[in-house]
């Protein structure tokens, strides 16, 4: 595990009281209600149930909240640049180049009518003035970096011609080719076969670590987050219930300090070593959202 940032280093991302509201015909849906955190060059996990606002947090950072949605925050700063006052065009230039995102299912997140090579090269050419040959060379290098054995052959394949694991590695190559500082990984392995999940995670981890990037790892898988991240935010109902070092998730002796919701999530997990006759039902308390 990497050492936490030294206090003198500027954080990559500062987020204070982030709110995402959807103004619908039936009223305001509050997807994120006041989330605050700072991200350094570390691996930050965000866990929670479906609908807890973890994906919307990622989208809000990227300025990709769909139409009736609205983002508010007291502070949203990327390396000293205030994202809240930035115009749409500048936000777009940050995407891919500075902050990027790997999405859940490569089957849907790759454009079916373009070759994977075209799509990776495009991610590079959006941000760099490069000839198509240069972009292709870059893409091939990137495909190698995500451990694809025959990059030249895979470059010309269409998304439906690659497997899920390979598709997700292509996705990682595409999202890292412009060398961003922050990568948001939104359930990057949930759609994958268990056998390739770890392989893809390993590749992701190596790249993020070797490039000294900040990673926001969004997942509902506690085990995964615990073994993969440095720090974990547990979200419920659009709010952070608590933030804790990932190692403490498994630490039985620390249970006393844990938030009841975190304990609830932990107790819901089946455990191979300790046989449980009944899995606990998750208890939620509306008072936590107050």
């Amino acid at each position: 595990m990497r050492a936490p940032d030294s206090p003198t280093e500027q954080p990559l991302l500062e987020l204070d009281n982030l709110r995402v509201n959807f103004h619908t015909a039936t009223g305001i849906v509050r997807a994120v209600r006041g989330l605050s955190f700072t991200l350094g060059r570390e691996r930050l996990g965000i866990v929670g149930e479906s609908g807890s606002g973890k994906s919307m947090t990622g989208r809000a950072i990227l300025d990709l909240i769909p139409h009736p949605g609205e983002v508010q925050a007291d502070k949203l700063v990327y390396r000293g640049q205030n994202l809240l006052t930035m115009d749409k065009g500048s936000r777009r230039k940050l995407r891919g180049r500075h902050i990027s995102m790997v999405m859940q299912d490569p089957k849907f997140s790759l454009n079916p009518v373009k070759t994977v090579g075209e799509q990776i090269a495009e991610a590079y050419r959006v941000h760099h003035k490069a000839s198509s040959r240069e972009a292709k060379e870059r893409s091939l290098t990137m495909l190698e970096a995500v451990q694809i054995r025959e990059p030249a052959r895979v470059y010309d394949l269409y998304p439906h011609e690659v497997s899920g694991g390979m598709g997700q590695r292509v996705m990682i190559a595409m999202m890292l080719i412009a060398e961003p500082d922050i990568l948001i990984a939104d359930e990057p392995t949930s759609a994958l076969d268990v056998t390739v999940q770890l392989q893809v995670l390993k590749i992701l981890d190596d790249l993020v670590t070797s490039r000294g990037m900040g990673l926001i790892f969004i997942s509902h898988d506690l085990h995964l987050v615990q073994s993969f991240c440095d720090r974990v935010i547990v979200m419920y109902g659009g709010k952070a219930m608590e933030t804790l070092p990932a190692a403490e998730l498994a630490d039985e002796s620390a249970r006393a300090h844990r938030h009841p919701y975190t304990l609830g999530l932990l107790d819901c997990l089946p455990d191979l070593d300790h046989r449980k006759d009944k899995l606990a039902t998750l208890k939620r308390d509306p008072a936590w959202l107050a």
Binding site: L62, M101, Q104, F108, M175, A178
Partner: peptide
């Protein structure tokens, strides 16, 4: 579709997202 979001994540311009993707 998800691939449209992916294209936007890459920083592709809205024009290119619509006409190209």
């Amino acid at each position: 579709q998800q691939y449209v979001i992916a294209a936007r994540v890459k920083g592709v311009s809205e024009w290119q997202v619509i006409w190209g993707h």
